[in-house]
Amino acid sequence: MKILICLSNVPDTTTKIKFTGDNTQFDAAGVQWIINPWDELALTRALEIKETSGTTIEKVTVLTVGKADTEPTLRKALAIGADDAVRIDAEPKDAYQVAAQITGFVKEQPYDIILCGIESSDYNGSTVGGMLAEFLDSPSVSSVSGLFLENGQIRLNREIDGGQEVLETMIPFVAIVQKGIAKEPRIPSMRGIMMARSKPLTVKPAVAADELTGFTAFELPPPHAKCKMIDAENVGELVKVFRNELKII
């Protein structure tokens, strides 16, 4: 069995977001790039399954759609423990174009288990995993918070309001995973870091697929309003603020 993890290369979650070109482009200057946190958890769970399932899992591959500057992120995934990495040489534009690129690769080299993070922490599209499953004509399960392989059978847990669903699925399938899939991401070991360079990182040409959507402008949220303290006894003042300043009553 082979596992594919679709990785997004995203700005560090503490990055101060800025835009250029009259708010039409993300300003990547000085940004530190990381593995999308949900994808990193997916990778962690895949490695846990590989380590505990004997020889059932042949390999864990990580894949990203991106230009050469995304390779350090892929090598970090190799340092954490992925067996090989694939970069599809295309600038990611929208979910359709990214899903089409991954589809092109998976049709050429099939995988049994495909894991996608529930969203990327930059554009929060939450669409690639579902589209990918559709393009591959595979079952897909969303919001997966538990993935288990027992006697060749897959069991998936989904968080639902007030409880949990337990599902089975045929193989191959796409799981769109969320928090809970693994406890916390792994820290690469020194040995892993040194071995990362000697693991295969294959660059594949992009397939023909144009984006269907495009950004016209970005808007940053307004700065946080100042906090105004009103004495608990002074209800009149509170009503005045609601009526005159906030205009909500």
């Binding site: 350090p72 090598r75 970090k76 820290i187 070991s189 020194m190 870091i193 040194m194 990362a196």
Partner: peptide, 14 residues
């Protein structure tokens, strides 16, 4: 180097 950055990040994360 890329390795040095990864090592620094690993230590920082821990």
């Amino acid at each position: 180097t890329e390795e040095q950055l990864m090592i620094r990040q690993a230590a920082k994360d821990y």
